[in-house]
């Protein structure tokens, strides 16, 4: 059985992101997430650098690794050219591959991201798609977005976009052949495996937590509602 460190080291980004941390903490000083959360990228790097299996296992089961906003502000400021943001990406990968992510509130949210962004990618070829930015769930988008959303066809046409139509242009319909290629890329390169891993671990956690239907199977709609309302005070 591979150790945590072996799993982390299999990812080239660990080599790219971790040279030799001297613990100066400049990454923490400039980190927007450290300002917002109780979060310290310096200590994460020190933990990974230590190679302590138990501490790394706890780390990938924790909320901590999900607090980074991936802005990479840490990267240009490190005197030794480490990149804590990249190390975080590696920890998150292992957390999802091993199922550790369901043990933390922020980690469990990966299921929500998969359902929105993952679905958009495979079904439309875009990460973000106008019909999925629903005003009711995006009140911050304001009245102008609501007007755009309600008049999509006319507004996009007015500004020269090609919404859902054949040919080139902004928000064009990405054809079936291209979507099939995208799906095959995901199947060939591990993307589909990761999607399946996130779904299966989430289903198991949903069942274990009592979100089941009349047949005792995981009820993922109930689970989604739970995730959407799971706040900081939960558990």
């Amino acid at each position: 059985m591979r150790t945590m460190m072996q799993k982390l080291r299999e990812d080239v980004r660990l080599k790219e992101g971790l040279n030799a941390c001297m613990g100066c903490g400049i990454c923490t000083a400039v980190c927007p997430a450290a300002e917002y959360f109780e979060y310290d990228p310096r200590s994460i790097v020190v933990t990974v650098q230590s190679g302590n299996e138990e501490k790394i296992r706890k780390l990938i089961e924790s909320d901590t690794i999900w607090m980074c906003g991936q802005c990479m502000s840490c990267k240009p400021r490190c005197p030794r050219n480490n990149c804590p943001g990249l190390i975080i990406s590696v920890l998150r990968r292992v957390s999802q591959e091993t199922g550790a992510f369901v043990k933390s509130r922020l980690g469990r949210q990966q299921y929500l991201i998969l359902k929105t962004i993952g679905t958009n990618i495979l079904e439309t070829g875009y990460c973000v798609y106008p019909a999925s930015v629903v005003p009711e769930t995006h009140p911050e988008q304001g009245d102008v977005w609501k007007w755009i959303y309600d008049n999509k066809e006319a507004v996009y046409e007015r500004v020269g976009a090609n919404l859902d139509k054949e040919g080139p242009g902004a928000m064009r319909k990405i054809g079936r052949e291209n979507l099939d290629e995208l799906e095959r890329v995901f199947a060939e390169s591990g993307g589909q495996t990761l999607f399946t891993s996130i779904v299966e671990y989430s289903r198991a956690y949903a069942k274990e937590s009592g979100f089941v239907d009349a047949n005792g199977q995981p009820d993922m709609e109930k689970y989604t509602d739970f995730l959407l309302n799971e706040d900081n005070d939960e558990k």
């Binding site: 064009r172 591990g190 993307g191």
Partner: peptide
């Protein structure tokens, strides 16, 4: 302006649902 390119999936990558190999 080519019609065949899709999202690079970068938002999925940085929100960790798309692995680096993909």
């Amino acid at each position: 302006d080519n019609a065949n390119h899709t999202s690079c999936t970068g938002i999925g990558y940085h929100s960790d649902i798309v692995p680096y190999e993909t």
